[in-house]
Design a protein around this nucleic acid. Structure first.
Lengths: 346, 346
DNA sequence: CACGCCCGGTAGAGCGCTCTCCCGCACCCC
DNA sequence: GGGGTGCGGGAGAGCGCTCTACCGGGCGTG
């Protein structure tokens, strides 16, 4: 604050060279005489110079950030906004996304700006922020299938990559999981275990992933001659898993296998099952989805369908980088395969 | 990409006024004739103008972002970095911090840039980023008591506010909780319930908060004539809560009350307790700490010491804003009071 | 009615950087 | 030895904005 921060000019004067040369040394472009190079480097050291990002951005039209936006479809009131953030991060899933994204961004010297978009205004804010050049592109994780943000981004021709295929077709790249395949894995495992009365707790059916997991699960059971699967819809939270399981149990007390569309709900289901005197997996086998951190902390440890979230997030960041750099212009999609992880719950 | 983004100049030409006038309208400074005002506004509309952040930053020396840094003390290898992020966000605590911060930042049009600093290099990166003007200041949440980052920030005279009092005195503002008081609340509740053989699972003792919670807990018991409290150190994770509880139980099978330094460990402790045939709270009462989301999803629901994390985070953001704006120059601290929330586990 | 004042507007100087263009100089080939 | 060739370095024009002058004119005042 007190003394003005040293500029390129200052370093140049100190080193007795021109601004351009210092800039070249700093950015490592073109050949600069080794002697002059460390003359400059020493001058930088002495002055404590740090390049000014804003100035650099102004001319290069590139920032060192991307927006990481968690997007809902609602138009919940503004007061609920920070509750949204809290709620979102209550699911270890998002932590994994952050981990994967940061892992890829960091080596490139980039950082994620966290944004939440669950109201029309906040969506507009995201678009504005990008248009103003606050970030070079957006990584979008939607919590709803009919999220309007992707279309907004695409219309504004802003670089963006989505986690999961958007509800309506939108010309943006995305990464996704073969959810149907995941459902199949769960069904086959339960079947192989000898379960006969199988039910499932789905995710919110407004989410495509939930639909797909259910479809894959159902189809597989049907193929094995089990035409009817009791279904209860959950909301991807422990709580919702509990109530879904409770209602399932009320209607089908003889259930002996349950597939829940994520681990949090599996945890809830197991709690209810135990409360009602069922042993897991002895009486009822439970298969979760995600292979999140709760899968191993929960007792019994969860048998679950692994979703390589970190890897997916990391790929998302790479794709975005490609789009930003212009190395890739047309939208693409990368689909990951789920994997069954057998532990104790089934 | 194709057509150049419209600039102030373009809008000015379109509206038939000068650049300065447009700038005034955009930023709402000084009086501008209402007629001209919407002449300009219309021109903005027509051209689809968006102010360029970089250019603005260059002259105002202010960004619209602050760094939200989660900081460890280690020098773990670089490959563990994204694991760090994942691990950190596995605790709902950080989600609450994000929620609180965003809630305060958003109305001010600011956004958090997420950064992780658990290696010397990454710490340096945070400092560089701020010095380069990538963000106006830093909000720091340390996971270790002897985190070197605060001192680095203070030395560089960068605006920063900490969550929790730093290990070594550093001239930076911080928010904190009266942890000792929290320990007291837990002890008193257990005592009032009639527990006689009370033990505790602490957080990592390298964290001041853990020490304080323990001290408050211990002092209160001592004052009630209970001179000896079995202690097992945990690591704030469910897992560590499980092993700590297991070792406590092995040495003191007759324990009838446990205070765990956070909710995650309470959850782990309860699992072990149940596995070993203890009913909670009937046989053993368990009091957690934080009042995080698991407190209500866990069965039995946790009686816990509430830490108003969102409010603390929000205050942290306000303080930082004050420092950045120069409204506050000297460091200050705001200490929040914990509160006992009685549910089912004790 | 002359004077000063404020109001509403313009002009233009930077902010600190990158990058294109140009220039000088050694070097090499014929 | 003349003229390319290429490499290392400098000069200077912006990037798009804010902000400090400054300026013209309507108005209240003595």
């Amino acid at each position: 604050m007190s003394r003005q921060a040293p500029t390129l000019e200052d370093v140049a004067r100190e080193a007795g060279v021109s601004r351009a040369t210092v800039s070249r040394v700093v950015n490592g472009v073109r050949n600069v005489d080794p002697g002059i190079q460390d003359l400059v480097r020493r001058a930088i050291e002495r002055t404590g110079y740090t390049p000014n990002q804003a100035a650099r951005q102004l001319v290069t039209r590139r920032t060192t950030t991307v927006a990481l936006v968690v997007s809902g479809a609602g138009d919940s009131s503004d007061t609920e906004q920070n509750a949204f953030a809290t709620r979102v991060f209550a699911d270890p899933f998002f932590g994994r996304v952050v981990g994967g994204v940061v892992g890829r961004l960091r080596p490139r010297g980039m950082h994620p700006v966290l944004m939440f978009a669950e109201t029309p205004e906040s969506r507009q804010e995201v678009v504005s922020y990008l248009r103003q050049g606050g970030a070079d592109g957006a990584l979008v994780v939607s919590t709803h299938h009919d999220d309007p943000l992707p279309a907004l981004l695409a219309d504004a021709r802003l670089p963006a990559v989505l986690f999961a295929r958007p509800g309506r077709p939108v010309p943006l790249s995305y990464v996704d999981l073969a959810h149907r395949e995941g459902g199949r894995l769960a069904a086959e495992h339960l079947l192989a275990r000898g379960c006969r009365r199988i039910a499932t707790v789905t995710g919110p059916l407004a989410v495509a992933a939930s639909q797909e997991r259910l479809a894959g699960f159902r189809d597989t059971l049907a193929r094995h001659g089990d035409p009817y699967v009791p279904v209860a819809e959950g909301g991807f939270t422990v709580d919702s898993g509990m109530s879904a399981m409770a209602s399932l149990l009320a209607q089908h007390p003889d259930v002996d296998g349950v597939f829940t569309a994520n681990d949090l709900m599996a945890q809830g289901a197991i709690q209810v099952l135990r409360d009602q005197g069922r042993r897991v997996p002895r009486d009822v086998a439970v298969v979760g989805f995600d292979d999140s951190s709760v899968a191993v902390t929960c007792r019994p440890r969860l048998t679950t369908v692994r979703q390589p979230v970190e890897e997916m997030a990391s790929t998302m960041a790479s794709l975005l980088d490609d789009h930003i750099a212009g190395r890739r212009t047309d939208a693409t999609s990368v689909i990951f395969d789920p994997e069954l992880v057998v532990r104790d719950s089934a």
